[in-house]
Design a protein around this nucleic acid. Sequence first.
DNA 1: CATCTAATTGCAAATGTTTTGCAATATCGT
DNA 2: ACGATATTGCAAAACATTTGCAATTAGATG
Lengths: 153, 153
Amino acid sequence: MESFIDQVTSKVRAEGGRMTAQRRLILDALEDLRGHPTAEEIFDHVRNADPDINLSTVYRTLRWLEENGFVSPRWFEDEKRRERFDPVDRPHAITEHFHFRCRVCNRIIEFDEPLIHELRRKYAADTGAEIESVSFTLYGVCALCKKDTPEQP
Amino acid sequence: MESFIDQVTSKVRAEGGRMTAQRRLILDALEDLRGHPTAEEIFDHVRNADPDINLSTVYRTLRWLEENGFVSPRWFEDEKRRERFDPVDRPHAITEHFHFRCRVCNRIIEFDEPLIHELRRKYAADTGAEIESVSFTLYGVCALCKKDTPEQP
DNA sequence: CATCTAATTGCAAATGTTTTGCAATATCGT
DNA sequence: ACGATATTGCAAAACATTTGCAATTAGATG
Ligand SMILES: [Mn+2]
Ligand SMILES: [Mn+2]
Ligand SMILES: [Zn+2]
Ligand SMILES: [Zn+2]
């Protein structure tokens, strides 16, 4: 299968766009920083390789990737107004999966839950609405962090 | 049962706070504007009664209500960085319910889905995490809007 | 390889939403 | 009615993201 960068490059070309060093770095960062990075986190990461890169380039690239289905934006309630970017490697499918967010270590853990797809169908059937996307996020304390802070006696 | 305003007034008093005209107006607005209003929407609404009220007063009051469990903030993905406020009338329980957001009329429809509570327990049992809150939101086109724009032949 | 042109970049300023410091005002126990 | 202090209005700051524009650069063309 085509690598992430190759997929994106094909699409960029197909749109009459150009593959720049900055875009390559941002795509690399998205592969390295697997955990739903923010634009700022990506920016900090790519600065190592190119200290002159600009944050607005990072945003512009991410928006382009979003419009072309290579990343999905995500929001978590404990970071009200900050956007995170979820790379969607698999070609032609915005893979639907869900997230658990640990309030202690801030890790974001992905999971799938087939019943959610069931609920989605059920809601559509019951109400006559057409569902286009689903967001399901659990918030709490992950098993590891729970172990580190045992409940007080 | 105690009205919303009475509940809040009791709590304000209990904290050594004061019940002001502005707070009363904001609480009224929260009752009038039942559909998950933004701070700005509340602000516009209360301006009718008090043209001198300030937006920062609205925010400060909403934050206080949030800290004291009278409203829950909500975000919807199509309004990335804008917060909405969900009044929680029922005493002492952040009522867990879920939302459907119509991308055409922008209505927010609430629903409950007992299976979600099941999934929550299941995730906790499977992973050892402790779940503190759940967010489940469906996005799409509601039945009414679907009727208005029948699919092209 | 040199040239050309439009796409992309860096920069600085703007945007939109929410927060904050502070002096003036108003609430409520006395 | 008085006084301590909680709350307000205002203006400015904070914060994440977007945008206009002139300078740079990718990559097609000869
Ligand atoms: Mn994800
Ligand atoms: Mn609600
Ligand atoms: Zn954790
Ligand atoms: Zn609708």
